[in-house]
Amino acid sequence: MAPSQEEVTLLGVVGSPFLHRVQIALKLKGIEYKYLEDDLNNKSDLLLKYNPVHKMIPVLVHNEKPISESLVIVEYIDDTCEQNPILPSDFYQRALAHFWAQFMDDKCVVAAAKFVLKVDEKEKEKATEELYEALKFLENELKDKFFAGEEIIGFVDIAAVFIPLLQEVAQIQLFTSEKFPKLFKWSKDFYNHPVVKEIMPFKDQLFVYFKARAQSLAAKKKN
């Protein structure tokens, strides 16, 4: 992928952890792109055209070829641009990175979405328990090359971008330096990385996104 010669467009909604995964990858690679803001409650024709299956952001359009699903997009960016590799070259370490990234989407993101978007207190309590359980696994695995910390941002770091974002938008302190010391330190280091800091949204943008997401889900239930 040659930024100066090829057309790259990114469709998204500011505040979405999935969008910011892709933006971090593009920034790390030095790839210039055109950003188009979409609307979760009034999806654009362009979004419906490029992602007719899930009708969700983010969507990366590279020379008129659309790619959807944030982790798929990040890997595509890494595969098509050699500089500043995101995924490990070692096949075993690469497999581990995929495993933990998928773990986050299957366990952490699902529980986090329930925690943020559910109004019912019982559902929120259950979601909190599920989220803490998932965070415990991450705390125990926060070692070796799973998370790169402040020096090198890798695939698993990017997959975990929702953790510091969730900490920002949550009404309670989700994890502390006492309860999750490794995760707490990683979150601070990652959030303060120059590339990440430049991309991370403001708190009010996060609230706007999650409110729109909740409204979108509520509308789906009515239909």
Rank of each mutant, 00 (worst) to 15 (best):
P52Q: 13
F210S: 03
E64R: 15
P66W: 11
K34D: 11
L11T: 07
S70V: 06
K118S: 14
F184I: 01
P58K: 06
E198Q: 15
Q83P: 03
V109T: 11
G154H: 10
L87F: 13
M200V: 12
S89V: 09
F180Y: 13
K118L: 08
D39Y: 12
L60G: 04
E178P: 00
S68V: 07
Y132Q: 04
T128S: 07
P58Y: 07
A212D: 13
Y209Q: 00
Q5C: 06
T176F: 06
S4A: 08
Q83K: 14
P85A: 06
E129P: 02
E125G: 12
N140S: 11
V116L: 12
Q167S: 15
V169N: 00
V116M: 07
P194L: 13
E123H: 14
W100L: 07
S216R: 07
L11A: 08
V72P: 02
Q93E: 14
E130S: 12
L117Q: 05
K203R: 08
D45R: 08
K114W: 02
A2Q: 02
K179I: 11
K222T: 15
V208A: 14
A97S: 14
I158V: 07
L135R: 02
F115H: 11
E129A: 12
P66E: 12
E121H: 09
P52Y: 10
F184G: 00
S68H: 06
Q173R: 12
K65S: 11
Y33A: 06
V110Y: 05
T80C: 12
I199Y: 01
K29S: 06
S187E: 04
K220V: 12
E198M: 13
A214P: 01
D105Q: 10
Y209G: 00
E141A: 11
I24L: 03
E151G: 04
F175Y: 15
I57D: 04
F115W: 15
Y92F: 15
H62C: 09
K197R: 11
N42R: 14
F18T: 00
E37V: 01
L60D: 04
D106G: 09
S70C: 10
E168K: 09
V119F: 03
K27E: 12
A148D: 05
A219F: 09
I152H: 15
L46P: 05
E7L: 10
F137S: 07
E141T: 09
L26M: 08
S68M: 08
R21W: 02
A2I: 05
K182I: 09
E121C: 08
Q5R: 10
V53K: 08
I31W: 01
V169P: 00
F91L: 15
V196Q: 00
P181S: 10
A95I: 06
E139Y: 08
D106H: 13
H62L: 11
Q205L: 01
S177Y: 03
L10C: 08
W186L: 01
L46K: 11
C108K: 02
L60R: 06
K124R: 15
N192C: 05
G154N: 15
H193D: 06
V53W: 09
S44T: 14
V196W: 00
Y209H: 03
I158L: 04
D144P: 05
K143P: 01
K49Q: 15
P3A: 13
K118Q: 10
G154M: 07
K55H: 10
I163R: 02
D157T: 05
F180G: 03
V61S: 04
R213W: 05
K65M: 12
